[in-house]
Write a protein that binds this DNA or RNA. Structure first.
Lengths: 317, 317
DNA sequence: CGACCTATTGATCGGACTCAAGGTTGGTGG
DNA sequence: CCACCAACCTTGAGTCCGATCAATAGGTCG
């Protein structure tokens, strides 16, 4: 039964016909699928030797008969709590990814009080880390805007991500335990919280739920990158620019609820998101402007009507 | 001390001045950083009530004085073993990723004996799964060759990965819990082991070490995809073709130790790896042939001298 | 041995890059 | 507060890489 069903906890007698309790716990703990189920012995064998043997075989608790009902209930409660702690199963309480972030933030706050976590300020164009460096921190952007990018040849770079307040970054290399293969640069005045990697590892190792959320986050990121690859390979610059604009729009719209939101980012950076030359990007923007899809005021771009814009892309390409 | 050092196990008395054992375990178990350290009470308090209270507060074992030295040693051994099982820390014994794979394979073999894991055979060009389907299995390629790809427009596809015997696939969507956004197709006669997703989840949830390896694997994959994106954006077709050939070479060379290995893959598929038109790919191959870098026999491509080839790419581009 | 698939080559066209030059904007110092 | 400079944006012209369409050659399977 333990093998084929989802079992939260096992309460088991010792003296039983055919297979005794010791035999049961032996089987249970040697099967990886059941090894982590809390196991409580409930038995008439009250000798110290019996108790020791039960514990040595890996039982989590041992209650001898006669017993008080409250004793058993409390034992169950205690073991379930411990097991829950171990799994830290967020999905069960349906809080999802935000809980994970809160969790990291909460240890960060913890650290903030102590003196291990530093907050550092960066000016516009200042580098947070560069390719080849060894990572020592998990970063949390507190205020400002940051880009992470990879360099190709002289002057050519591809922006991997644009970060806004509340975003974590620099975790892939921490998880992979390799040097940075991207650089991070402040796009405006920014404050960054530096969480020592040891704390990050500790959190990950002690909390199965956080780890689980991370796995989800990473697989999601892989799929996004694959999608991006497909588009980079076969979509025209015009289409890629349009999609980048929509993505940016959606990414920043979370903050302000305006339907028409304006995107403020340098032409060069925008070109480096799309993966094209600055001039090509500008020509494309210019096309969109002439077609009445966007408005340009200096360096600010505004999508006039995002639905219309999306419809246009679908129809035209 | 427990908070600032790496602690494997705690043995604690109950009757102590200032802070008693119950106070200690309370602090220990409420701090996420220390909550998972095995905790054993070793005390003169041998009353049943004391024992119950200790266990209820989350102790992992309880030994009353006077005690036999062997008893204590065995208790320590048992708790360390249990904790190790819980962490499943592969990196500690430096076996790394292969151990993880072996682990999955071993549960797969386990399943093979029972009847839950099916082995299915696919003919050339047969589809294993397609975009939009809901995933139910983790796949393990036992024999043959398979490609996974994403479709763009009519006739255009980008090959995400080429799989050889021993490779797992289809896990990103399982972890992300979304429908497939890629398709998998057999390139030749292949046998695939289908591991029910429940088993995969069970393994992941019960074994912290496997999870950890997975996190590493995924972050590594993210970085590879980012690298690929950069190249797709800014490298010429010629360079991308050359790099694809070298990558293929290295991927398959593991099996046979020849320096000159030949790559057998259709021109169309190769073009879809590079992300270019079939004709462009062929022209590029043709160039390489004229420069004496590769040899072509029918559909087989052989890199004459891989070092020379790599040097050429570096110099020429 | 014919039908069909795969590989190759040719010719053409257009999208996107490069180089170059002129316009705008915003910040700084006198 | 204004002038000036530097950084950024925009447009033009030319070029080339790579896609597309088309046609032929080679190979393979029933």
């Amino acid at each position: 039964m333990a093998n084929s069903n989802t079992v939260d906890l096992i309460i088991c007698d010792i003296m039983m016909p055919v297979l005794d309790g010791y035999g049961v716990i032996h089987l249970i703990s040697n099967n990886p699928k059941t090894a982590l189920i809390p196991f409580i012995f409930l038995t008439a064998k009250s000798e110290r030797n019996d108790f020791r043997k039960g514990m040595e075989m890996g039982a989590d608790d041992y209650i001898s008969k006669p017993f008080d009902d409250i004793e058993l209930l409390k034992a169950v409660e205690s073991r379930l709590k411990k097991s829950e702690q171990l799994k830290g199963d967020y999905t069960r309480d349906e809080k999802g990814i935000n809980t994970f972030l809160d969790d990291v933030k909460s240890i960060q706050e913890l650290k903030n009080l102590s003196e291990t976590a530093k907050v550092k300020n960066y000016k516009k164009k200042e580098l947070i880390y560069t390719e080849g460096n060894n990572p020592n921190y998990l970063y949390l952007l507190q205020k400002g805007k940051i880009k992470t990018f990879r360099a190709h040849e002289y002057g050519k770079e591809l922006i991997i991500s644009l970060l806004k307040a509340g975003d974590f970054f620099g975790y892939t290399v921490l998880l992979d335990e390799t040097p940075y293969n991207e650089s991070a640069e402040a796009l405006e005045e920014s404050s960054v919280v530096m969480i020592p990697k040891e704390d990050f590892y500790a959190l990950l190792n002690n909390n199965h739920g956080v780890m689980k959320q991370f796995v989800k986050l990473l697989s999601n990121e892989i799929q996004e990158k694959e999608e991006q690859l497909l588009k980079m390979a076969y979509s025209s610059v015009k289409k890629r620019v349009a999609e980048a604009l929509i993505k940016l729009q959606k990414q920043y719209q979370q903050n302000s609820k305006d339907a028409s939101f304006n995107i403020s980012i340098s032409r060069e950076d925008l070109a480096n998101i799309v993966g094209t030359a600055t001039e090509s990007l500008i020509r494309t923007l210019s096309d969109f402007k002439h077609e009445g899809l966007i408005e340009i005021k200096g360096s600010n771009i505004t999508i006039v009507d995002i639905n219309k814009f999306e419809a246009y892309i679908k129809k035209y390409f």
